[in-house]
Structure formats: structure tokens, C-alpha cells
Write a protein that binds this DNA or RNA. Structure first.
Lengths: 268, 268
DNA sequence: CGCAGCCTTGAGATTACTCAATCAATGTGG
DNA sequence: CCACATTGATTGAGTAATCTCAAGGCTGCG
């Protein structure tokens, strides 16, 4: 039996070893994008074929590999097949802002397609692979599969809502609240794909990278994590975080789960 | 001659008196959305009629009026016809995050349509009016006018890029840099609609509201503005800000103008 | 003239940052 | 199998920035 999307996801989150075993090409079965979209809506044959035509070869990446950089010209979106990545912007003072953390099934590079060049670097957190998806294929989708086009807009708008949530948290809250928010968000996202619900999450980012995500230094992250542990809100193992007191965590950073629902009532 | 979009904009930014004079209804000429979209691309007759059918009655609002609140169910997007508004989220500790500031021609409520309820409050900064646009009309656009649908996605993605820029600035930068960024962003947005290029901008927000926008207290805003003036980077009058040293301002907050361009090469 | 809203300024408290040293975990080569 | 190097996490001490609380000033308006 060939692997399904959830197989990929489970493997990616539990076994992020640097050298991934030989996997069957995605073309063996279906494209990453088809898998991703199938999760969200049922597709007609027409829609399926429109999507499948956009299939291109997957590309693998290594831990810490930079897949593209700010200023690069681009032709593609990517769908994550396996592994974690993030995109980031380097500030002139040497600090870095991690903008988004990507997991299997996520779409990478969406905001950039309205501009001519990349606005962020893309970096591998673990080893893994991504499926390119030519930007020009979007035209086809909009022309031939309006319902899929509407779904893409929905995905973009949900990303925007999440960014607004983060803006609120990161511009006002304490170090502990910021770290708590990051853990809660990752948990919400991973839960809706992997289905595990014990509120334990795999965390391949080191504390410096966590700091780059939430706007803190590695030292402040360390202190915040320690404080959250001492308060009994979380427990950390080697590369795992367990959220012990969801209610308190959610309350301290005013977290909202935006991944639970997608409204489709206005779709064509 | 009935007013054009740019008439509205010029009036809104230069004459934000609390009680707007009687204006002809937008139906006299064309819908707000048609005007907005015409700015960005040329439309075929088919596209024009698809858009025009979505016309509904405009609604006026007063300074400080709350037009909708977090949790409200919604059916509409809005296009700003005249005046300024912002949307905001109240934090449990009594502070408030202003998420977005809207000017004539802007689309309000876009991120919310992927969710069932409002995620922010909408508040009038000056008096003005907005044109509702039923969410269900989006389905029509996606079905019948794919190029307009693609344009909507572009607009959403540009909003997202701007949010990413803000996340970077507000989670790391100094008070002066945050305030400078806000002024630069407002200037860039107003310039592309009003066309004035002397880098002087109308600023109806008080310092408390500026603080709510950039994640500072009113006291810190006051100190930051004073410091920027003392350094000769800006000058402030009663309700105006003049940007004296664009180069230094842009450099201190790493500002990027995302409003100058929209790439349409992938459009159907 | 006096009130109200907004802005400014001061002083002390809080919070995160920087710099630096130490500790822990992991992996490598002899 | 163990010394050693490397990377990441922790802890301490002092610094810098913003926040809070509070008082006072300016401006526009009834």
C-alpha cells in the first residue's frame, strides 16, 4: 500500500532523522496538493484532473538547508511533503524573525506570489521534501476550478487571521505568554493533521530558534520555559513539550484555535 | 459631475470634519468595489456587470462609532467610501491592539470570511461611510469572473505580506522605530491613493491610538515622537506629520513599501 | 472662564537584554 | 570505552528600555 498523507505526517513528526529513508515518489500515487486539498473538501473529477496536471517533481532538503533567500525570483509555490521548515527574515542588526513554521501539508510561499521576489528565506528544520507547484498553475485553477480557487483564498485568509493573532500576542505580552502561545499554536496545527490529542508535541526548534519566532533572545526563552515548568504548566523532555494545563496556558496568552474550522458557505 | 473615487479620497483625508456634508449616493455613479477594482486592472463588460450586481446601499458612521464587534455573525465585506476606520481587539488586561487602519478604497473584513464570526471590532476614526458587499457575492465572482477572483487573492496576500512586515518590526524594534514604521506605512498607503508626494500625512489618531497600533503606551509614543522630532526626522503639526528624512526613517525600521506593485502575471 | 481631552514630563518599578561563565547532552576519534 | 569537542541550555550580574503612576501644561470649546 502506498503511503497516504497522514502516513507522511506521522513519520515526519515522530521520526525526523536527518537522512530520510527512500520513499516512493509522490507521483506514484497523487500530488501533495491533491492530498492537501482532499483533506478540506471533496473534489469532482474535473477538479481532480485540474489539480493533478500541475504535478511536478518533488525536491528534498536537509536540516539547515536554505531553499531560497530574500530577493530570489520565484515561479513556484511548495507543498510540504515531509519534514519541518520555516521562513525567516534577517534584520540588519543580525537578529532574525521566523515568520512561519511549516509542516507536512502546508503551502509555502503564498504571500510572495503577489510580489516579484521572495520576502523571506526558507530553511529546513529537519530533513524532508517539498513538492513545487508552478505559480502559473494558479491561473488554471482560477479559470477551471472556481471552488478550488475559493479554497485557496480561504487558506490565505486563515493565514492572515493567524498572523493577526500573533501580532497581538507578540507586540504586547510577556515572554512566558509568547512562548506559551507558540507551543499552543504548534499543538493546534499538528493536532489537526496528526490527530494525536495528548497535547504533547515534537519540538525540533532549539531555544534560539524559538526566540526568533516569538521575538525573544535564547536566554529569555530559557527563563520563560523554566518558569512555565516551575508553574506546572508544561513539561519538557529532550525534543518534546507536554502541555499540562491547557486552560491556564490558553488564558495567559489569550489563544484562539483558528485551525479547527474553515467556513465554506460562500463558495461557488 | 458626480464624485470619483479620488475625490472621495482627497476629501476624506483633508476634510475629516465630524459631520460630512450630504453626498450623492454611490449608486449615482458606480459601486465602491467597481471603483476600487478599476484602479488595479481594466475590466471587461462581463466583469463590470458581475461586480455591479453586488451593489448594496452604503452606510455612514460617526467618529468612535463601533460598527461591529468581536463575535458578531457577519454576511458582508465592506469597502470604505469616505473616512478612516480601524479594527481592533481588546486584550483581557484592558489594552487594545489596533490591527489595521482603513482608508477610502480599502476592503474591510476580508480575513473574517473564512471564519463564522468577527475576530475584531470595527471603529470609526473619523466620520465617513462604507459600502457593504455581501459575502455570498464572492461566489459569483469566483464562478463568473476568475480574473477578479485572482485579484481578490492578490489583495489578501498583500495584506498578509504587510502583516508579516509588521510582525517583524513590532516584535523586535525600539519605540522610535515602531512609530516611524507606522508613519511610513500610512504615508505609503495614502500616497498611492491621494497622489500627494510631499511626505506629509494627515493623522487623525491620537497618541493612545498610535500606541494601540504599534504596541506601546501613550507615554512611550509621546517620548518616541518627541525624540524623532529632536533628531530632525519628522515634524508634527496639529493633526499632521511631515516626514523630513525618509532615508533615515526607512533605515531605522527597515521599511518596505508593499503598496507600490501588484504582480498579475499568473492571472487567468 | 473653566472644563475636558490630549500631550508632556518626571521618578521609580519591571522586564527583557547583554555579556559571561558554567553545565548538560551528544557525538567523535583514539 | 573513555577523553574531548561541540552544541545547546542554564544561571548570574549589570544594563537598557519600556511601563506605571502621577502631576502638570496646552488647546479647543461651550
Amino acid at each position: 500500500m502506498s503511503p497516504t498523507l497522514s502516513d507522511f505526517e506521522a513519520r515526519a513528526t515522530r521520526d525526523p532523522a536527518p537522512a530520510p529513508a527512500k520513499r516512493p515518489s509522490v507521483a506514484d500515487n497523487q500530488s501533495c496538493l491533491v492530498a492537501k486539498v482532499s483533506q478540506l473538501i471533496d473534489m469532482s473529477d474535473l477538479e481532480l484532473s485540474a489539480l493533478s496536471q500541475l504535478q511536478t517533481e518533488e525536491r528534498s532538503f536537509a536540516r539547515d538547508e536554505v531553499l531560497f533567500s530574500v530577493g530570489d525570483h520565484h515561479q513556484d509555490l511548495y507543498i510540504v511533503q515531509e519534514g519541518w521548515l520555516f521562513n525567516a527574515i534577517d534584520a540588519p542588526d543580525g537578529r532574525r524573525q521566523i515568520v512561519n513554521i511549516y509542516h507536512p501539508g502546508d503551502i509555502i510561499g503564498f504571500p510572495d506570489i503577489a510580489l516579484s521576489t521572495r520576502t523571506t528565506d526558507l530553511v529546513g528544520v529537519t530533513a524532508g521534501s517539498i513538492c513545487p507547484f508552478p505559480k502559473s498553475g494558479l491561473g488554471t485553477i482560477f479559470r477551471e476550478a472556481p471552488r478550488l480557487a475559493a479554497l485557496l483564498l480561504s487558506i490565505a485568509l486563515r493565514e492572515e487571521t493567524v498572523l493577526i493573532d500573533r501580532l497581538r500576542v507578540f507586540s504586547r505580552s510577556s515572554a512566558q505568554a509568547r512562548v506559551a502561545y507558540l507551543f499552543l499554536e504548534l499543538n493546534a496545527r499538528l493536532r489537526c493533521t496528526t490527530g494525536s490529542d495528548d497535547n504533547t508535541l515534537y519540538m525540533p526548534l532549539n531555544q534560539h530558534e524559538i526566540g526568533d519566532s516569538v521575538g525573544l533572545t535564547n536566554v529569555s526563552v530559557s527563563r520563560a520555559v523554566t518558569a512555565l515548568e516551575e508553574r506546572g504548566l508544561i513539561a519538557t523532555a529532550s525534543r518534546e513539550v507536554r502541555l499540562l494545563d491547557m486552560k491556564a496556558l490558553i488564558e495567559m496568552c489569550d489563544f484562539e484555535d483558528r485551525y479547527a474550522q474553515v467556513v465554506t458557505d460562500w463558495f461557488p
